[in-house]
Structures are given as C-alpha cells and as structure tokens.
C-alpha cells in the first residue's frame, strides 16, 4: 500500500487491502476516508447492509415475542406513550422522508441539499431520543407488582437504536462537510439512510405491537 502514497483518488484501489509486500519494515495504509466503489463492491456493501439489517431486526422479534408472553402486564404509570411513543414515531417518520430526499439530492449532485436534509433528520432523531427518554425517566417503578417492565425495556432499546442511527447519519453530515460525498460515492448516504429508516420502521412496528395491538 506504500506504493499508493500520494496518488490521486482515481487511481486508488477500490477496496482496502492489506500490505503488498513484506520487504518494507512498515506497511503504511493511507488513503482518503471515502473510496469510490466499483459496482460489484457497491453490491457487496448493499448485501452487507442487508445482513446487518436482518440480524438487527431479530431483537425486535424477541421483544414482541416476550411482550406476548407478558400479556396481562399493564403499562407503567407515567410511561406516557403519546409523548414517548407517538411523537417520536412522527419525528422519525419525517426524518425518514428527509434522509431519502437527501439520498436523492446527492444522486443529482446537490450536496448542500443532502447536508441540509441529513442535518435536519439528525435534529429530529435527537428530539425523538429526548422525547423517549422523558417518560423513561419519570415513569413509576413498581418492581413488586405485575408490572409492565417489557414496555420500559422496549423504550430503552428504541432509545439505544435511535442513538446509533443518529450517529450513523451524523457521520455522513461530517463527511459531506469535508467534501467527501458526491454522486460518485452514493453508498455512504444511502447506507446511512437505510440504518435510519430501519430504526424508524422497527420502532414503529414495536410501537404498534406494544400500544396499539
């Protein structure tokens, strides 16, 4: 990889590979944060994302499953599901629309539109996290009754995953800020949008299973 030192992006190898020879005492791995992917590598990336999403959907199945086992448990007092459920759902839904608009904007080369919509969805995500945390913080604990602890846990899981999704989208905002994202490197925003959308859909499904069904 040392031989690639100082070359332009166009000549960069399309995937990150380990050292070429051991004659050098050091293998220096140095390249820009974002590489252009070949179509095959983009498919590989999509496949990896799909596996990731499939694997991360399974915890939600477990939660829904346990929630059915716990049928008869009540929703703990002050675990306000409008504040901590409905509003975050709406915010995340708007965020989902925004990230997909951002991905579209990026495809047609409008980087500033991408930055704007991704930043907005980060803000919405943070707002959703805060709204979810409020009822989690103030809800009534009763660990000696037939108590809906599964609701509390689901709320916590949703917060955790939303934090991850926000960080993922935030990374794209930063990279776009340093001019690394463009129509040629659409995988980054696209995969971040997948993570964000997945989180929104999974939370929506959980919300429906918890409070509405």
């Amino acid at each position: 990889m040392a031989k690639n030192f100082g070359v332009t992006t166009e000549d960069m190898p399309t995937s990150i590979q380990a050292g070429v020879s051991t004659t050098e005492p050091w293998t220096v791995i140095r390249h820009p944060a974002v590489l252009r992917l070949s179509p095959r590598e983009r498919r590989l990336g999509n496949f990896g994302m799909a596996l990731f999403v499939i694997s991360q959907a399974i915890p939600y199945f477990v939660l829904v499953n346990v929630r059915w086992m716990m049928a008869g448990g009540y929703i703990p007092p002050n675990l306000n599901h409008q504040l901590g459920g409905l509003w975050p759902t709406i915010l995340l839904a708007i965020g989902t629309v925004l990230v997909s608009l951002g991905v579209e904007a990026n495809r047609s080369g409008k980087i500033s539109r991408l930055q704007w919509s991704f930043t907005a969805s980060v803000v919405l995500g943070v707002a959703a996290i805060v709204l979810m945390l409020i009822p989690l913080w103030v809800h009534g604990w009763n660990t000696f009754g037939h108590y809906g602890s599964i609701y509390v846990i689901c709320q916590g899981v949703a917060v955790f995953y939303t934090i991850i999704a926000v960080i993922v989208v935030l990374g794209v905002v930063f990279r776009a800020g340093t001019g690394l994202i463009g129509p040629q490197t659409s995988f980054g925003p696209q995969s971040a949008a997948v993570v964000y959308t997945f989180n929104a859909i999974a939370w929506f499904g959980l919300y429906v299973a918890l409070y509405l069904v």
């Binding site: 050091w26 944060a33 974002v34 990374g171």
Partner: peptide, 25 residues
C-alpha cells in the same frame, strides 16, 4: 476518524507487532 471524514492513516509494522493491533489482513 474515517467515518467522520478524516483520512485513514494506519501503519502496520511488518513483524510480530502486527499481531498486537487491529489488522486488515
């Protein structure tokens, strides 16, 4: 760092020390 836009900079010594760090090989 690369995720937030900084370039990848990682040097791997080509001896036993490569086993005591993250490796891409």
């Amino acid at each position: 760092r690369p995720y937030f836009g900084k370039p990848v900079e990682w040097e791997v010594p080509n001896d036993w020390r490569r086993y005591f760090m993250m490796s891409l090989d």
